Computed example of a mutant assay.
Amino acid sequence: MVAGTVTIETESEVAPKRLWNALVKDHELIAREIPELCAGVTFLEGNGGVGSIKQINFTPGSTEFSYVKERVDVVDEEKLIYSYTDIEGGELGKNLASAQFTLKLSPKAGGGSVVSHICNFDTLPGVPQEEAKLEAMKAQLTALFKKMEAYVIANPSLYNA
Rank of each mutant, 00 (worst) to 15 (best):
55 Q>Y: 08
73 D>N: 02
82 Y>H: 12
70 E>K: 05
89 G>P: 08
90 G>I: 12
62 S>C: 13
87 I>T: 10
87 I>F: 11
76 D>A: 09
61 G>M: 02
96 L>N: 09
50 V>H: 00
59 T>W: 06
50 V>L: 09
77 E>F: 03
63 T>M: 05
53 I>F: 10
63 T>V: 02
66 S>I: 01
103 L>K: 11
63 T>K: 10
101 F>A: 13
94 K>M: 03
62 S>I: 15
84 Y>K: 02
49 G>L: 02
78 E>P: 04
86 D>E: 14
81 I>R: 08
77 E>N: 12
49 G>F: 02
50 V>T: 10
59 T>K: 03
102 T>L: 08
56 I>L: 02
67 Y>R: 00
72 V>K: 04
53 I>C: 07
49 G>C: 12
60 P>A: 07
86 D>L: 06
94 K>F: 04
64 E>L: 15
92 L>C: 01
75 V>Y: 15
51 G>Y: 08
104 K>Y: 11
88 E>S: 14
66 S>G: 09
62 S>K: 14
52 S>T: 05
59 T>P: 02
105 L>S: 14
84 Y>F: 04
94 K>A: 08
60 P>G: 07
58 F>K: 10
52 S>G: 03
62 S>T: 15
74 V>C: 00
55 Q>R: 01
94 K>T: 01
50 V>S: 11
66 S>V: 07
83 S>V: 11
67 Y>L: 00
77 E>L: 06
75 V>S: 07
78 E>L: 03
58 F>S: 05
50 V>Y: 00
53 I>S: 13
96 L>W: 03
51 G>W: 06
56 I>P: 06
55 Q>D: 05
81 I>T: 11
50 V>R: 03
85 T>Q: 14
64 E>Y: 13
58 F>A: 09
80 L>W: 04
81 I>H: 04
57 N>K: 13
96 L>C: 14
99 A>N: 04
103 L>H: 11
77 E>A: 06
102 T>A: 03
95 N>Y: 05
104 K>W: 06
98 S>C: 05
75 V>N: 10
81 I>E: 07
92 L>V: 01
48 G>H: 01
55 Q>E: 04
59 T>V: 13
90 G>W: 08
80 L>F: 05
97 A>C: 12
60 P>R: 15
63 T>H: 08
103 L>A: 15
81 I>W: 04
100 Q>H: 12
